[in-house]
């Protein structure tokens, strides 16, 4: 269970995010600049909220009143960045290994082999990120995240830098990954089709304020109706 209730003043508005996420993947859905990515950054510890609470199962990641603010290194939050943020000076293997530096060498190599197989990266081990296609980069980034054994998975517009064809090929793939992962997953997106295929629940967010969580299909019907009314 991931519980988030935070506030953070930003230039254009005050971010007020409040939601709870269980094993059902949750989508933060809204226009660009609505504070979706900022919410993920607060959960992962990259940004610090002004006040609030972030709790993951029995671990408090952030609590402004108790002055708890775990560094990102200790939160075990897997963050898939929009442009994947692969380390350009390291090979594919190097990038994946970076996620598990604390494991003993033998275990590390075994896990690397498993992840290479699982994410279909065979033959790419010694390539640098800038020689990879968009889809390959995404798989490396995911392998790197799972190497670090995260408890939560945050996906920040995972398809925004891919072309449409590839995107629709990858959606079922990502859906399987989320299912196999089994932990809390939050998807940030501005594309309702994407959300419908990946998340059962949705928390719409406008100008930094999250709305009550709602079933994705019910929300989709509301959205379509609004659209019909406009016509």
């Amino acid at each position: 269970m991931l519980y988030v209730e935070i506030e953070k003043r930003l230039d254009r508005f005050t971010l007020k995010a409040k939601f709870q996420c269980d094993h059902n993947p949750l989508a933060l859905f809204g226009a660009s600049g609505a504070g979706k990515s900022m919410t993920l950054k607060c959960i992962s510890g990259i940004e610090k909220p002004d006040r609030g609470v972030i709790q993951l199962n029995d671990r408090v990641l952030f609590d402004s009143e108790k002055h708890i603010d775990l560094p990102p290194q200790k939160r075990r939050v897997g963050y898939l960045f929009q442009e994947y943020a692969l380390f350009p000076n390291m090979t594919v293997s190097g990038n994946i290994m970076a996620g598990m530096r604390k494991l003993p060498k033998k275990e590390r190599e075994q896990k690397l082999r498993e992840l290479i197989g699982q994410f279909q990266l065979n033959g790419l081990e010694n390539r640098r990120p800038d020689s990879l296609s968009g889809g390959e980069k995404q798989r490396v980034a995911l392998a790197r995240i799972f190497a670090s054994s995260p408890e939560v998975l945050l996906l920040d517009e995972p398809f925004s830098s891919l072309d449409t064809m590839l995107k629709y090929q990858l959606i079922p793939y990502i859906r399987n990954i989320i299912r196999d992962f089994g932990g809390e997953t939050i998807l940030v997106s501005h594309d309702i089709d994407e959300v419908r295929q990946l998340c059962g629940e949705i928390s719409p967010i406008t100008d930094g304020v999250t709305q009550e969580i709602i079933d994705t299909e019910i929300y989709y019907q509301q959205l379509t109706k609004q659209y019909e009314d406009l016509k």
Partner: peptide, 11 residues
């Protein structure tokens, strides 16, 4: 983002 990614990976 590279530094942030590194931090979330525990580096």
């Amino acid at each position: 983002n590279l530094a942030d990614a590194g931090r979330t990976l525990g580096l």
